[in-house]
């Protein structure tokens, strides 16, 4: 099961950009281009509309601030994604109850990571990640491949989940260190290579982790 993301953005070109990247990374997206359209969708489908919403602030019909109440009523976490970089707007957005506030232009990977954190925090993250016959249970920290359980060390498990959550995206070694070991870990980037090698040894599916020369690694998933 994929997490469903509602993208409320009136600029079609930006909306397409977000959807394209989210889909590639393993999310299901739904785009609306108008504030009132989003409101209508929420009234109609309620909580089923999405697990998370990326909302622009300046929208035709109904602006992002006005939409917040509706999203909160349906318990859908909201991340504002907007060109409004002033502090007043940021404070207002966060005070209204947004989970995060990202200013355009944004980096795709940053957006993915922030979304992931929000999903985890709000308990909307699907508890299982799947790839082929690989199943990862995020709550129990257990991994099965072809029905048989595979024993993974904590860091190997962390690395695998980062790959599965950010499929088809090039992840640099520094970035991986940051995401898995945390920003206060002063390890060498070699650590990442060692753990990737271990994953490849333990899991057949880890063959999908491709080494990208001079850039890092990418978990390739053609099934998306």
């Amino acid at each position: 099961m994929k997490n469903r993301i509602l993208v409320v953005e009136d600029e079609r070109i930006i909306s397409d950009l977000i959807c394209m990247n989210l889909e590639t990374a393993g999310y299901e997206t739904r785009a609306v281009y108008d504030g009132s359209e989003a409101a209508g969708l929420l009234r109609e489908q309620g909580q089923e509309a999405a697990d998370l919403a990326l909302v622009d602030i300046m929208l035709p019909g109904m602006d992002g601030f006005a939409l917040m109440e509706l999203f909160q009523g349906k318990h859908i976490p909201v991340i504002y994604l907007t060109a409004k970089a002033d502090v007043t707007s940021k404070v207002r957005g966060l005070k209204l109850g947004a989970e995060d506030y990202i200013v355009k232009p944004f980096e795709v990977l940053e957006l993915l990571v922030r979304m992931e954190k929000v999903l985890e925090r709000t308990g909307k993250m699907k508890p299982e990640l799947c790839y082929g016959d690989l199943v990862v249970d995020l709550n129990m920290h257990r991994v099965w491949e072809g029905g048989a359980e595979v024993d993974l060390k904590p860091m190997e498990f962390g690395l695998l989940t980062v790959f599965l959550k950010n499929r088809n995206v090039v992840l640099g070694r520094d970035r991986l260190l940051d995401l898995v070991w945390g920003s206060d870990f002063y390890g060498e980037t070699r650590t990442v290579d060692v753990h990737v090698a271990k994953l490849r040894k333990k899991l057949k599916s880890a063959g999908a982790i491709k080494t990208i020369p001079k850039a890092g690694y990418m978990f390739e998933d053609d099934g998306l």
Binding site: E11, A83, P105, V169, V170, M218
Partner: peptide, 19 residues
């Protein structure tokens, strides 16, 4: 902002996302 966001976002996607 919009065109710059598009240019940066799409080029970044081309560089680091498997499209």
């Amino acid at each position: 902002k919009t065109p710059v966001t598009s240019i940066m976002g799409y080029s970044e996607s081309l560089l680091s996302v498997r499209l």
